[in-house]
Design a protein around this nucleic acid. Structure first.
Ligand SMILES: [Zn+2]
Ligand SMILES: [Zn+2]
Ligand SMILES: [Zn+2]
Ligand SMILES: [Zn+2]
Lengths: 156, 156
DNA sequence: TTTTATTATGTTATAATATAACATTTAAAG
DNA sequence: CTTTAAATGTTATATTATAACATAATAAAA
């Protein structure tokens, strides 16, 4: 679906921005944090915690679940990745710090995920919450379905 | 938050509707399915699978995880409950069969959940998907925050 | 520059959530 | 009835995540 023209630059951009953000916030972008972010950005598919752990064991034999979950927490807290609750999986944020009104389209066929932003939609969500006298703090919007490419392929 | 005026009728209505739906669809609303739906409707808070299992053990000593998960699957498949992915919890559907464009407001303070529907919002979501050439099949929209009542209480 | 405090990581154990696979029982259909 | 299908029972295990405490690395203070 997402067919980025040059995924190497997706990856290097993400790492560059993460580094900048950590500098700015006075956070430490340690080798562990960097390698896990790198793994998550290895493609545009969601990453599962224990898959990350398995990969991590290739470079760090003694890696264990807390190693991964703590790092995921760090990356989540600082907006560098998102958690996809309906998949129990994680994906790199495609524009850290810019804003938080993001949602996700994920294709059940090709597994790719697209992070989308839409002010109108964000407004509609806030409006609805407000109609219900509700103060939103954390919004999960995950849309599963099929992308155009996969729909086209299926028709052939 | 939800402060239904008479929860006994929430419960009995839900069971009545479930029964009707099962009849109409030729499904069996077995005692197990009924009691679990009843447990889920015991309040307007999300129910966790293993809490349901514990309660179930009071009436059926040999109950085990598959007992619960299979029943949850049945109730989910037939639209009688919803799963809240961001909580790994389940909640009774407040209007089974009517439509599927629902989303959830849940108050982190009082733990109550409100199922909401809003055609405009549903339209906005579909429009956004469509703008991305994406065919939505399953939408998760969960809004965590604070309800008016809890905000007011905190101010006192 | 040592000392101290803080943050990050290592390690062991276990909690919480969910499913696979196969056996038995119950109900529906023929 | 008898066969078939659906539901439930049962055992085992997979998957996801955290608690609690030990050690190491870095930063801040003295
Ligand atoms: Zn890319
Ligand atoms: Zn696709
Ligand atoms: Zn009620
Ligand atoms: Zn509340």
């Amino acid at each position: 679906m997402y067919s980025c023209s040059d995924h190497k630059s997706c990856l290097s951009d993400a790492l560059y921005v993460a580094d900048k953000i950590c500098q700015k916030k006075g956070l430490r972008f340690t080798p562990l944090r960097k390698i896990i972010l790198e793994m998550i950005w290895s493609n545009h598919e969601p990453s599962k915690a224990y898959d990350i752990l398995d990969k991590l064991k290739d470079v760090n034999l003694s890696a264990k679940p807390p190693t991964v979950y703590r790092t995921l927490d760090f990356l989540l807290e600082n907006g560098l990745i998102h958690k996809l609750n309906s998949l129990n999986a994680y994906i790199g944020c495609s524009h850290p710090l810019e804003h938080s009104e993001c949602f996700f389209l994920f294709c059940q066929e090709c597994k790719e995920i697209k992070e989308c932003c839409n002010k109108e939609l964000a407004k509609a969500i806030n409006q609805t919450a407000s109609n219900n006298k509700f103060q939103p703090m954390n919004v999960t919007l995950e849309i599963q379905g099929e992308c155009q490419e996969c729909t086209d392929k299926a028709r052939l």
